[in-house]
Design a protein around this nucleic acid. Structure first.
Lengths: 214, 214
DNA sequence: TTCTGTGAACGGATTCACAGCA
DNA sequence: TGCTGTGAATCCGTTCACAGAA
């Protein structure tokens, strides 16, 4: 069942879940695919089709019960449980990741952080003691984690990813600017702001910056 | 011409450009779509088709001249020129962005940074004086920027994006966890690590963390 | 022979359009 | 009447397969 659901669909589910939680926190109880779509810039048909892969959550003529649907989606996505995350690379970016308050409330707990720089190892950051990256495997053997975040320089990234995979990590969030190679059972998402910028400049390059009329 | 090129294709071009520059820096002069594809995990046919939208850059039987192709791609993407970028939001994330050394070498220059917190305004970070976000419009009127980076909390993000757009920004890199609404001529890319994690957990949720055999 | 460039075939995702239920 | 759920139709991106150039 899991296997024949398009990946794009799975990637939209968390977007729906978040928007629905938002509506819920505003006291809303029911929403139509129409309204949700307007809020997200997604067509209503798309939303209904996506949801139909997983069940029949709506009521004809009414719409979707928001609380119910959020719970279903969180269940489907595995967001009801907690996840253990390890971070490799504690430079500026790694530090920002450790300080970022958005992971824990969603159940993603960074349980260990590693770096190779002796000046960084031993530091306590956001309540976590940075360990030497050489201890990655043994630390993960004692306390497994499902997810790894890679925030090391490009030159070291593939090596670190290989070691995370060898240590049992099943999903990797890669901030390094490389096309990571992993075995098929491991999942990877890339975060690369430079690539994002470089693909946007294609569209704006002919229009020089301007000051709009006041 | 610009308009009928699939966006996915445009998004792959910077990936090619980077890989090619890498090869170039290793002294390579020619590469086939086959080899490039292996390096990137992209099929050779895909690469050839992508490039064919823009011209005929290869030599049959030989492959692509790397230097030539990099230059073509950089030209197409507008990477030969410099771009002015403003950052809004100088929390942990914003600071990391200011310190990040990956933008400037690619021609993306952060020329101004804004925040709303009086404790942050006036600070000098990575050589840049943080300004009050209330001065966004006038600063951009005096010194336009094509690109805005949004690193403010979700609650403020849409408002900031509206003001960036009103100030002439044409492309936005949005780190805030919202579905930003912008006019059609403005381009947006999202960076949202939580969404990335949440779409991966779908695939790994049934397999608990384990320690692989040593 | 090798590898590009590209129409044609294919497959997958989106949108349509409507039957059916509340 | 309003809105879901869903097959069918459409659209779009990827892959195939091969003609043709070096």
């Amino acid at each position: 069942m899991t296997l024949d659901i398009p990946e794009v669909v799975v990637e939209r589910l968390p977007i729906y879940a978040r928007a629905l939680q938002d509506l819920l926190s505003h006291g809303r109880e029911v929403v139509s695919s129409q309204e949700l779509g307007e809020q997200l810039g997604i067509t209503p048909a798309q939303i209904r089709k996506d949801l139909s892969y997983f069940g029949r959550f709506g009521k004809q003529g009414r719409g979707y019960n928001i609380r119910r649907l959020v719970e279903e989606l969180r269940q489907i996505l595995g967001l009801e449980r907690d996840w253990s995350v390890v971070l490799v690379g504690v430079g500026h970016l790694g530090k920002a990741i450790l300080h970022y308050g958005g992971f824990a409330p969603q159940g993603f707990h960074i349980i260990a952080a590693f770096d190779s720089d002796p000046m960084t190892v031993g530091q306590e950051i956001a309540g976590l003691r940075v360990q030497d990256v050489g201890r990655l495997r043994e630390t993960l053997a004692a306390r497994p984690a499902e997810i790894g975040i890679v925030a090391v320089p490009a030159t070291e990234a593939q090596e670190i990813i290989d070691r995370l995979v060898a240590s049992g990590v099943q999903a990797i969030l890669n901030y390094a600017p490389i096309a990571a190679r992993v075995p098929p059972q491991v999942h990877v998402r890339h975060i690369d702001p430079v690539l994002s910028l470089q693909s946007m400049t294609f569209y704006v390059k002919d229009a020089p910056a301007f000051s709009p009329p006041k």
